[in-house]
Design a protein around this nucleic acid. Structure first.
Length: 426
DNA sequence: AATCCACAGGAAGCCCGGGAAC
DNA sequence: GTTCCCGGGCTTCCTGTGGATT
């Protein structure tokens, strides 16, 4: 390269890989949803009721991650909103993600605030205040029934239908039980003007089993299942997005197929396929080459797996890190099976060495289960007959990676973990 | 068949921090 | 400031359990 050229010249000379990478991000809601016609049809059939003035049935949607559930529902929400002026009553679709809004209180408070805002939009601030409505419901502090009453009153002020979409509803029930759902489904019998319709979205197919029978029957009046995409469908989806997001002729032979194949293996997750494609493109871009190859896809796959894990471990609370580190040490030290008792012994030692609080074995056992759920370790309950019942724990990630992630620099203000270079085991 | 190990994991309750209202 | 409420992390106490051993 000629020295006289500036720093950016080379980068500018190479053709860009992307036309617009936004279309590959999970935040983008596509305008058309290929291979989901049947599901969208069902959705429409159920949600058409409010346009005729009836209350639509409550609805349950199942499907693994990345099968287009959220996208389809958001699409339907837009459509509902668009045609709602033709309906006999106002239709207000509301979307809540229960991963974030995950307690009864928070759900009710969020809903109350949303509908308070809508009320003010319609009638003006002064009128609403004059009716003795609060400015807003605080995100903590009130008794829950007070929040419920506030939401109820706000909602019932107008002739309207609230279509409440609860995404990742399984998270909510797992964490806080089904009391909210019971209250929400029961509302209709008390509301004078307004009506409520619940749309629950769940990744977990067995989820209804956990529900109170009363909630179950009223919530799953209608059900729609989103099956995973197969390899061909994924390929088709990718091709459509590629046309929008990548420059022409920058994808090498087999790139799309490989992305689709990877995702098909992971229960047909379209989101992952798109992420993979984008990351592969970004790797190629960083190398300033003009062609994305299957090698880029392979490296993108490895990178994503590793990033995901490092991030999870890095953000672990320090006690969990210590438990994980105990497993790492045991894995490095010996080949025999690691059980809860071993981990606790090492963990205890680390705590004493570092002058940290020592948690009880009961709690550590829970922490191990959490690590298991995060996919960092694999904990299986085994029975050794006379020698008890315990969890056999294996690292699911290479010990070197785990060690590096645990030992990563801590943010300022958090105490350093007492991680020794060498540990003498008992 | 009875025993017994080494825990699993449920239930209840404590403590603390944070926010709101009084 | 005090009081109330909520949620999260944790402990204490407890009952349950698969299967080798007695």
């Amino acid at each position: 390269m000629r020295r006289s050229e500036g720093l950016f010249d080379m980068l500018l000379e190479t053709r860009p890989i992307f036309k617009n990478r936004e279309y590959l991000r999970p935040s983008y809601t596509p305008e058309e949803l290929p291979h989901r016609d049947e599901q969208i049809h069902q959705l429409a059939r159920i949600l058409v009721a409010p346009l005729r003035g009836e209350t639509p049935s409550n609805l349950f949607i199942y499907g693994k991650t990345g099968t287009g559930k959220t996208a389809s529902v958001k699409y339907m929400m837009n459509e509902l909103k668009r045609v709602s002026d033709r309906a006999p009553r106002m239709i207000e679709p509301v979307y809540l993600n229960c991963e974030i809004v995950n307690t009864q209180y928070r759900i009710l408070a969020t809903l109350a605030n949303i509908f308070l805002d809508k009320l003010r939009e319609r009638y003006g601030r002064e009128y609403v205040t004059s009716l003795d409505f609060p400015e807003s419901v605080p995100m903590t502090g009130w008794p829950t029934d007070e929040v419920y009453r506030c939401f109820f009153r706000t909602l019932d002020h107008d002739l309207q239908l609230a279509v409440i979409v609860l995404d990742e509803i399984d998270r909510l029930v797992l964490k806080s039980g089904d009391e909210v759902l019971y209250n929400l489904t029961r509302m209709n019998s008390d509301l004078m003007k307004a009506k409520v319709s619940i749309v629950g979205i769940s990744n977990d197919l067995n989820f209804v089993g956990y529900l109170d029978p009363r909630v179950r029957s009223s919530l799953s009046e209608e059900e729609i299942v989103f099956p995973p995409y197969n390899g061909l469908q994924l390929k088709d989806i990718l091709e459509r997005r590629v046309a929008m997001s990548f420059a022409d002729d920058v994808l090498g032979e087999g790139v799309i197929s490989l992305c689709a194949a990877h995702a098909a293996r992971e229960h047909g997750d379209a989101r992952r396929a798109l992420d993979l494609l984008r990351t592969a493109g970004e790797l190629a871009e960083r190398e300033s080459v003009e062609l994305v190859t299957v090698a880029h896809v392979r490296r993108a796959f490895e990178k994503m797996e590793k990033d995901k894990m490092v991030e999870v471990v890095r953000t672990l609370p320090s006690q969990s890190k210590l438990v994980l580190f105990s497993v790492v040490l045991l894995t490095e030290k010996n080949s025999r099976k690691i059980v809860t008792g071993d981990v606790y012994t090492v963990y205890h030692k680390l705590c004493v060495q570092g002058g940290l609080d020592v948690l009880t074995q009961r709690r550590v056992s829970d922490l191990i289960s959490e690590l298991d759920m995060l996919g960092i370790v694999n904990a299986q309950i085994i029975s050794k007959g006379r020698y008890g019942r315990t969890k056999e724990i294996k690292l699911s990630i290479p010990p070197i990676q785990a060690r590096a992630a645990v030992q990563e620099e801590h943010p300022i203000g958090i105490e350093t973990l007492p991680i020794p270079r060498q540990l003498t085991l008992v």
